[in-house]
Design a protein around this nucleic acid. Structure first.
Length: 590
DNA sequence: GCCGTTTTCGGCCCGACTGTTTTCAGTCG
């Protein structure tokens, strides 16, 4: 059983326990464990197989460890079977509805016998829900809205799509009277690859209510789901939910820190605060008076230590500012305390483009045009890496085509000054792990990329063996888009990435973070693992047109989430250093 | 259920908004 399946099952157990009315801290303990599992860079099954003690993991104790073992061994959890003899397992889907939590789900079952979304819809329609104590007409119609929403759910959007949605919305907000500053917080600021909803903060000393009013009148708003003194919530026609909070200058840094999250990062920072007698909230950081009743404190009571900037919030905990990309509670707080936070890679660090296509295969532009676009973006070198014939739609290069292409490159080179072109190829990994090009040609190339484009439905063992066989070919330099995923469209193919990364480290092969916002493949967690293993990472746009070269920033964001600095990025090297790396197998240099 | 610069028991982050309550529970992030 894969980590994500184990995490999903434990998350479901947490909801079931909540519906059962269990101790909320017990429920939270399971959620904390899920968080740990989601951040793991290795599979739990392989850790168990290696005889490792899972209780060494944070928030995993004896109980959760034995649950994990049971799941790996049997694929099921006895504990869930027991609970679902009390009430139907379907209730967990009711909890996913807006406005229905564990308490209400339980009452819907106990008092109306409602277990499924369909049954709930019927119960709303015939008035039974509105008749329940504590429900009423308004909550009934709200539930109906949520059901419609759930059924038409568009899910998470790409970060590139979020950028498009934000641009006009932020412009609208900046027009509101009294708004001094607007920032996007949440997962967008943490540079996540997909965005579930948008959190926006506006700075204003007065007139918050009017600003909220201006916000909910934005032309793109489909409906308003909440509008209070300091907070407004809407759903846009694009289906994405947006929250706006309005805060004064003295609290803006506190709010930015608070609403950037992640939730888990915030819980950790606040616990550190509590131990020091400090209270952190979106209004600032406050010293709790010795004799105060913590329950009776107002939101801004106590001595204000800071809140205008994020730096003040972290400084109150004796920590340096932490880059939002790292705020996932994956050890960044410890690293901040020890002064070992990485200096994260930036777009400006990238000096070469290693993966791009031309009209020789499925690219839109000639080699000369692509190279010129790279130079215009400040690159010092580029690799031309067109497809091979097995990628049918792409019009791949035969060995003869490859040699003809080199003539074109050779004719171009004298016109380029110091700019260097490396002769490359994106070679298809065939069904059995053989490569779609002769070894003779591969040996002549400067730079060999391999990647999977077909037969993606192979089982995990076959696919893993196939890819490992490919990267063990001594001519191979880089594995591209290693899991084949397309965000929101196609799941990663079945592959044991830990085994693949170990093989890449062994073979001295680099691995790509494909910068296309729909790929971003490797994921942050796999890139973290590659970093642990010391594998060079390439940030590649896989450009098929000039516009695609701008994808670089998405890959840089992904690399930053994986704690990567410039010295771990293959194409942050100079052309000379890159060439030296390409010669690594020649025995000349270590 | 987990955890330990207050510790192996007794804590565990914090506030806004909504709806239905007439003083607050539930939900959400």
């Amino acid at each position: 059983m894969e980590n994500f399946e184990i995490a999903r099952t434990l998350r479901e157990l947490a909801v079931l326990l909540e519906i059962q009315g269990a101790n909320p801290f017990r429920v939270r303990a399971y959620r904390n464990a899920v968080q740990t599992i989601n951040g793991l860079t290795r599979s739990l099954a392989s850790m168990l197989e290696a005889g490792e003690d899972l209780t060494a993991l944070p928030d995993v104790g004896k109980n959760v460890a034995s649950h994990i073992q049971e799941l790996v061994e049997t694929g099921k959890l006895q504990r869930i079977e027991e609970i679902t003899s009390e009430f139907p397992r379907d209730l967990v889907t009711l909890v996913r509805l807006d406005g229905v939590g564990p308490k209400k789900a339980r009452r819907l079952w106990d008092e109306l016998g409602v277990a499924t979304v369909d049954q709930l819809e019927a119960a709303v329609a015939d008035g039974r829900v509105a008749g329940l104590d504590g429900f009423g007409q308004r909550s009934a119609s709200k539930i109906l809205d949520s059901i419609r929403e759930l059924r038409s759910q568009t899910g998470r959007i790409l970060r590139s799509q979020a950028e498009e949605i934000l641009e006009p919305l932020l412009a609208h907000l900046r027009e509101a009277d009294g708004v001094e500053r607007v920032e996007v917080a949440g997962s967008f600021r943490r540079r996540k690859e997909t965005i579930g909803d948008l959190d926006i903060l506006a700075q204003a000393e007065t007139g918050a209510e009017e600003i909220i009013g201006h916000f909910v009148r934005y032309p793109g708003v489909e409906r308003v789901t909440g509008a209070g003194d300091t907070k407004g919530s809407v759903v846009l026609r694009s289906g994405i939910a947006v929250d706006l909070r309005v805060l004064p200058r003295r609290s803006f840094g506190a709010a930015l820190q608070y609403f950037t999250g992640s939730k888990e990062h915030n819980v950790s920072t606040r616990i550190i605060g509590v131990r020091r007698g400090l209270r952190l909230n979106e209004w600032g950081v406050f010293r709790i008076p010795e004799d105060a009743d913590p329950e009776g404190l107002g939101k801004e009571e106590g001595e204000r230590i800071g809140g205008e900037t994020e730096e003040e919030m972290y400084a109150a905990l004796d920590l340096p500012w932490i880059d939002p990309a790292l705020r996932e509670n994956r050890g960044e707080i410890e690293a901040a305390r020890e002064g070992t936070l990485p200096e994260l890679v930036t777009v400006g660090d990238i000096r070469g483009e290693l993966h791009m296509h031309s009209t020789w295969s499925d690219g839109k532009l000639s080699i000369a045009e692509m190279v010129e676009a790279c130079r215009a973006r400040g690159c010092e070198y580029a690799c031309i890496t067109d497809h091979t014939p097995a990628v049918g739609v792409a019009g791949g290069l035969t060995p003869e085509d490859v040699h003809a292409q080199w003539e074109e490159v050779a004719a171009l080179e004298p016109t380029l000054g110091d700019f260097q072109i490396f002769r490359g190829l994106e070679v298809d990994i065939l069904r059995d792990g053989a490569l779609d090009m002769t070894d003779e040609v591969l040996a002549e190339l400067d730079f060999v990329i391999v990647s999977v484009h077909g037969f993606m439905d192979q089982d995990k063992v076959t696919m893993t063996d196939r890819v490992i066989r490919a990267i063990q070919n001594p001519n191979v330099d880089l594995l591209a888009h290693p899991t084949g995923r397309l965000l929101g469209r196609r799941e990663p193919y079945a592959i044991d990435m830990d085994a693949v990364l170990l093989a890449a480290a062994e073979a001295g092969v680099a691995v790509e973070i494909n910068c296309n916002p729909r790929r971003l493949d490797l994921s942050d967690v796999h890139a973290l693992r590659a970093r642990e293993l010391g594998i060079p990472i390439a940030l590649n746009t896989d450009a098929h047109s000039v516009r695609d070269l701008d994808f670089l920033r998405f890959g840089v964001d992904q690399a930053r989430r994986a704690w990567l600095s410039a010295d771990q990025i293959l194409n942050a090297r100079s052309a000379t250093e890159f060439r030296r790396w390409l010669d690594r197998r020649s025995g000349v240099a270590a």
